[in-house]
Nucleic acid binder design. Structure first.
Length: 421
RNA sequence: GCCGGGGUGGGGUAGCGGUAUCCUGUGGGACUGUGGAUCCCUAGACCCGGGUUCAACUCCCGGUCCCGGCCCCA
C-alpha cells in the first residue's frame, strides 16, 4: 500500500464539508471588510523566502532544483508571494490595497498537534497605508472572525517593535545588533537579553529600563508611562480598535519579532485550549517590498492557520452538519428508470440537490441508501402511480407518503425545501 | 533534528511463541413495491525489513507512519 507523505492529510467528505464551511466564513468576512481574494502559485523561486527570512529557512522548506536547474520551493507562507505579486503587477491599484488569500503552504518540520507539513493559511494584507487605522482594522477583523467562529477563549497580545528599538538607539548597541536582542526577547530569554545589554556596555540604569519595558504587560493603560512615537502609535491603534466593541487584548511589549522587516505593531492571537501549538494568528506591519526589489510601501497583515481554527472550533463544541442530498429518486421497476432520471434532472435545474439510484437496486436498498445520505425526501416512481401520471413522495423524517402529479413533484419539492431552509 | 507513547479488517477493539475475538460499517438475502429494528450469509486485518526460534501477530533490533512534547515557528 502506498502511504500518504508524512505530515500531509486526506480529508474525508464530512471533514471536507466542515473545512469548506469555515472557508465560506473566511471569504464572507473578507468581503464584508472589502478585501479581495487573490491566488499565487504553489511553487516559487526559493530565493523569495531566503531573502525574506534568511538562508536558514531552506532547512525547513520543501525545496528542490527543477529540470532547468532553478532553485524552487513549495511556499512556506503567503506574505512574501503576495508582496512579490504586488510589486510585479498590483502596484498601480488604488491604495489601500486590501487583499486576502486562502491557500496551502508547506514546511518541513516535525508534525505535532495542530502542525502539519502541508497546512492552510488565511492571509490578510493591507498595502499602502501607514496609518494606525490599517493596523486597527486587522484587529477588528480578527476579533470579528473569532466571534463569528464561536471561539470564546482567544487572547490577543500586541506590541510594537519601535518602542524597544528607539530605546536601543540611544545606547552603544548598533542598529544591526538590535535584531539579535529582539530575538532573545521574543523567545522570552530575558536573562540572556539582559546579559546582552551588559556585554554591549549599556549603562545599567538604561538597561534596566529597557528590560522593564520588554516585560511590560497589561491593558492599554500600561502604555501611559511610556514615551515616544511608537508608544503613541500603539495607543492610537488600540483606541481605534476598541471603539467598536471589546476584545480580549493584552499589551505585551515582549512581543517584538526579531526580523528586520517588521516596522511597527506586532501581534499574536492564541487559543490556549490548543496546547503547545496554540497560536492561531500572527501579524504586524512590515516593509518587504524593498527587499524584493520594489519601492518601499507601508504594509500590514496577518495570517491565520486554518487548521488550528478548525481545531479550536471543535474544542469549542462547534460542530458542523454534513452535506446531504435533498432528494433521492428511485424507480420501483426497470420501466420507470427514464422517468426517474428526468425527475432528478428537473429537481437539479431548480437548484434542489437530487440523486437517483445508480445501482439498479431494490426499493428497500435504495431507501436505506437514501437514508444514509440524509435525504429529506424520496421520490418513488412506480408503475401503479405512473399509470395515473403520479409518483409517490415520501418524507424521510416522518415516513408520511403521498401521491403527487409527476409534472408537479419538482416544483412542489422546490417549494417545500425552499421554505424549510 | 531530539524525547516519550503507539500501529490487529474501512472505523473501533480482544488476544496469544503454534496466523485471530467482538462491535460497527460494506455487499447480498429474509423483504415478491418501502429506510433507520431484527436475523442470516459474504468479503475484509496482525505497518515494513532483519534477528532469535522447530515456529513470530506476539520477543529483540532497525525503519516507517500516527499521537503528544522539545527545538523551531518566516
Amino acid at each position: 500500500m502506498i502511504q500518504r507523505v508524512r505530515g500531509t492529510r486526506d480529508f474525508q467528505p464530512d471533514e471536507m464539508g466542515r473545512r469548506r464551511q469555515l472557508e465560506d466564513i473566511l471569504r464572507k468576512i473578507s468581503r464584508d471588510y472589502g478585501y479581495r481574494e487573490i491566488q499565487t502559485p504553489t511553487l516559487e523561486n526559493a530565493e523569495l523566502f531566503t531573502i525574506k527570512s534568511g538562508p536558514g529557512v531552506l532547512e525547513e522548506m520543501y525545496s528542490f532544483e527543477d529540470k532547468g536547474g532553478r532553485k524552487i520551493a513549495l511556499r512556506p507562507e503567503l506574505t512574501a508571494p503576495i508582496i512579490r505579486f504586488y510589486i510585479s503587477d498590483l502596484s498601480n491599484y488604488p491604495i489601500p490595497l486590501k487583499l486576502y488569500c486562502i491557500s496551502n503552504c508547506f514546511r518541513y518540520e516535525e508534525p505535532q498537534s495542530g502542525r502539519y507539513r502541508e497546512f492552510y493559511q488565511y492571509d490578510v494584507e493591507i498595502i499602502g497605508s501607514d496609518a494606525p487605522d490599517a493596523d486597527a482594522e486587522l484587529l477588528l477583523l480578527a476579533n470579528d472572525l473569532c466571534r463569528r467562529l464561536g471561539l470564546s477563549d482567544v487572547r490577543f497580545r500586541i506590541g510594537h517593535v519601535g518602542i524597544v528599538r528607539s530605546m536601543l538607539d540611544g545606547t552603544p548597541v548598533k542598529k544591526e545588533e538590535q535584531s539579535a536582542f529582539l530575538r532573545l526577547v521574543d523567545k522570552k530569554r530575558m536573562d540572556d537579553a539582559s546579559e546582552f545589554l551588559k556585554s554591549r556596555d549599556v549603562p545599567s540604569k538604561t538597561a534596566g529600563r529597557i528590560m522593564e519595558v520588554c516585560n511590560t504587560k497589561g491593558d492599554s493603560s500600561v502604555l501611559h508611562a511610556i514615551e515616544g512615537d511608537a508608544a503613541a502609535y500603539l495607543r492610537e491603534v488600540l483606541r481605534i480598535a476598541e471603539t467598536d466593541g471589546a476584545m480580549n487584548l493584552t499589551v505585551d511589549l515582549g512581543v517584538v519579532r526579531g526580523l528586520d522587516y517588521y516596522t511597527g505593531i506586532v501581534f499574536e492571537i492564541d487559543a490556549p485550549e490548543l496546547g503547545a501549538e496554540k497560536q492561531i494568528c500572527g501579524g504586524g506591519s512590515y516593509s518587504l517590498s524593498p527587499l524584493f526589489g520594489g519601492k518601499a510601501v507601508p504594509s500590514t497583515g496577518m495570517a491565520f492557520v486554518v487548521d488550528r481554527l478548525i481545531l479550536a472550533m471543535e474544542k469549542g463544541g462547534k460542530a458542523a452538519g454534513k452535506e446531504n442530498t435533498d432528494v433521492f429518486v428511485l424507480a420501483a421497476s426497470e420501466s420507470q428508470r427514464e422517468s426517474m432520471i428526468r425527475i432528478a434532472g428537473s429537481l437539479r435545474r431548480r437548484g434542489v440537490s437530487a440523486e437517483f439510484d445508480l445501482m439498479r437496486r431494490s426499493m428497500s436498498k435504495s431507501l436505506k441508501y437514501a437514508s444514509s445520505r440524509g435525504a429529506r425526501y424520496a421520490v418513488m416512481v412506480g408503475d401503479r402511480e405512473a399509470a395515473s401520471g403520479k409518483v409517490l413522495l415520501r418524507n424521510m423524517e416522518s415516513g408520511v407518503q403521498e401521491e403527487i402529479g409527476l409534472e408537479d413533484v419538482a416544483e412542489e419539492l422546490e417549494k417545500r425545501l425552499g421554505s424549510a431552509i
